[in-house]
């Protein structure tokens, strides 16, 4: 069976992997000229379904927790299993209790316990939540490793093209906002990458604030990804001054040493989301769509890719059955 997947973001490539594992012959086409053209490239890479439950449905937790093993098995060393820390500035401590009330799988830390996990935060927060089971990865590594793995398994990649004409049995659309699906809406996300050797973190830190909750994810080479805004808009233009200030304020209030950090990158992506902010797999004849990952691409792609791959094989078997009768 031959499948053409449009979109080389985390959704398209996860689907490619699940299909290849089941024996399909896969081609992945993407209109941009490389992996960096996708919204996935700008993701935070937090595998944090317990934290996400604060504002997301139970499904995001039950389906999302499986992604930690999926990514861990995909490539050794890719996933860091250090959990997530959640803190709030002193005047917003009630946000921390609210967050705890909506979530599970955490333990409360006092200032000293927090300092033993993250020495650079010593003396900065009197309370924190620690989600021990959570993990994180660098999305750019993950996408690169996934692509290498797929190429090893014989998957063909076609970049800078959306007109790849492959004689495929099935076409899968994983292009997010580019899919022109009328039910999808765009949710703009802005992020930035800071570089400093004066702060070290071992795990993502979420900084609660009533208006804009921000996370700071450590990456290699003293880089920190700070994200991400959530704006009801499909505008993918450059980051706004307001968002820049809010993200930088959060980093600065986490640790004043961020004042001397370099801003090495800013980015804007548009997340594709359905009405309920949950992804969907839809099958119409030989066309399948897997989109709407909202802010949960790395978290939910493994599950939905597996579901979509199963449905593609089922659909084909039914068709074979029909033709043989």
């Amino acid at each position: 069976m031959r499948v053409l997947i449009r979109g080389a973001g985390v959704a398209g490539m996860s689907l490619g992997y699940e299909l290849t594992r089941r024996g399909a012959e896969v081609t992945i086409a993407d209109i941009s000229n490389g992996l960096s053209g996708n919204a996935s490239w700008l993701a935070g890479g937090m595998l944090a379904p317990w934290c996400e439950r604060e504002n997301a449905e139970e499904k995001v937790l039950t389906l999302g927790r499986k992604s930690i093993d999926w990514w861990t098995e995909l490539a050794p060393g890719l996933v860091t299993h250090h959990g997530t820390v959640v803190v709030a500035p002193p005047r917003d401590l009630s946000e921390l209790s609210r967050f705890a009330g909506r979530t599970s799988g955490y333990e409360w830390l006092d200032g000293e316990e927090l300092a033993s996990l993250e020495p650079d935060l010593e003396g900065r927060f009197s309370k924190a939540l620690f989600f021990r089971q959570e993990a994180h990865l660098d999305p750019r590594h993950a996408l690169t490793r996934l692509k290498e793995k797929l190429e090893m398994l014989g998957v063909q990649f076609v970049f800078s093209s959306n007109t790849a004409t492959v004689d495929a049995d099935i076409e899968a659309d994983c292009t997010g906002m580019a899919s022109n699906n009328a039910e999808l809406r765009g949710v703009r996300g802005e992020m930035m990458i800071l570089q400093t050797s004066e702060v070290a973190l071992s795990r993502p830190v979420r900084m609660l604030h009533p208006r804009i909750p921000v996370y700071i994810v450590p990456r290699e080479n003293n880089h920190f990804m700070v994200g991400a805004t959530m704006i009801e808009s499909d505008d993918d233009g450059p980051i706004s001054v307001r968002s820049t200030m809010e993200l930088l304020n959060a980093a600065y209030s986490l640790h004043p040493a961020f004042a001397e950090a370099k801003i090495v990158e800013t980015g804007t992506g548009v997340r594709a989301a359905y009405f309920d902010n949950l992804p969907r797999v839809t099958v119409a004849g030989r066309k399948i769509s897997m989109n709407g990952f909202y802010r949960h691409g790395f978290l939910l792609s493994p599950h939905f890719a597996s579901e979509a791959a199963d449905r593609i094989f089922e659909a084909l078997q039914e068709k074979d059955f029909e033709t043989h009768n």
Binding site: I231, E232, S233, G237
Partner: peptide, 15 residues
């Protein structure tokens, strides 16, 4: 607060 460019009439407004 809900739209960055101010004037964009996106899907959210339709909803």
């Amino acid at each position: 607060r809900e739209s960055s460019s101010g004037g964009s009439s996106g899907k959210f407004w339709e909803l």
